[in-house]
Amino acid sequence: MTLLAVERIKLLSTRSPWWCALTALLLTGGFTALVVSNTSPQFPATVASTQFAYSFGMAVIMVLATLAVTTEYRFGTIRTTFQAVPNRTAALLAKTSVVALIALLIGEVMAFLSWGLSMAIKPEADLALNSTADWLNVAGVGPVCALAAVVAVAVGILVRHSAGAISLVLIYFLAAENLITLIPEIGDDIYKWMPFNVAHKFVTGDGESAGGAAFGQPLSTSTLSPWWALAYFAGFAVIMLVVALATARKRDA
């Protein structure tokens, strides 16, 4: 518990997490307002359309998670941490846990803020959370953001440089997986198992929360069920973290 408290203080005493959280909320809220305000009777607002922009916020959360690690390497404070806590695995696990919890909270606030804002913009639309799919489409954003933050922390531990780690995380998240579909014949089959595509399946399911409307989030091509999709993404995050922890134990700080 002491390690968790220390990591919480170290993280929240700097400005970057607060700016990242604010940026994530403004980005998702702004894009959500733009999308929902342009709905019409032909393309009505749905629960799915309220979360159209969650990936923008998640990208910012991953930047926050990466900086939580690389900033310590940049300023050399990680050496002090490892001197105070010789068990590097315990120290890094505490940091990862704090970052994941903060990412979960930001993700949930981000999702429900977008949903509430949509209800205010289109009060006549049917945006009630009436089904499991509806709840997953909104509340599911938080867990996905938390696991994405774990992946980003792992990349930060492995790369250690802020610019390189952030570039790698954003390029993969925003572009690399989609580019795989361009591989002739097998690209689409490989893409079905890409981690962030699978994670998106947990949020969107098979499109039930879109109410049959075309105006909503693009659906995941994964063949897994939503809960198995979350388990798959969690497994990927754990593997990345294990590799990062093993690497951190073997090399100099």
Rank of each mutant, 00 (worst) to 15 (best):
S97L: 14
E185F: 07
T28I: 02
N137K: 04
I106W: 04
L101V: 11
D206W: 12
L241R: 07
W115I: 00
P17I: 03
G207C: 05
G207F: 06
G116P: 00
L3A: 13
S13A: 15
E7S: 10
A244P: 08
Q83E: 11
G216A: 11
G211A: 06
L127R: 01
T14Q: 15
L105G: 14
T46K: 05
A229K: 04
A111P: 14
F202W: 08
L12I: 10
W193N: 04
M119Q: 05
A103L: 08
G140Q: 09
A148W: 10
I190P: 00
L230Y: 08
A210W: 02
G164A: 15
P44Q: 07
A244D: 07
G156D: 06
A94P: 04
F82G: 03
T204V: 14
R8W: 14
L245M: 10
Y172L: 10
S131G: 06
T96S: 14
L168A: 15
G57R: 01
N197V: 13
N87L: 02
A53H: 00
V169A: 15
C145W: 13
A199V: 03
S222N: 11
G235Q: 13
T204G: 15
A175G: 13
V141N: 09
P123C: 00
P218V: 01
V169D: 14
S118Y: 04
A139R: 12
F56A: 11
V242F: 06
R15A: 15
I61H: 05
V153A: 13
P226I: 01
S37A: 10
G30D: 03
R88G: 06
Q51L: 05
P41K: 03
L158H: 05
A210P: 01
T221C: 04
L34I: 13
G205T: 02
V159I: 15
F215D: 11
G216Y: 06
E7I: 07
A21S: 14
V98E: 06
S40V: 08
S209K: 02
K122W: 02
T14I: 09
I166P: 09
S13P: 14
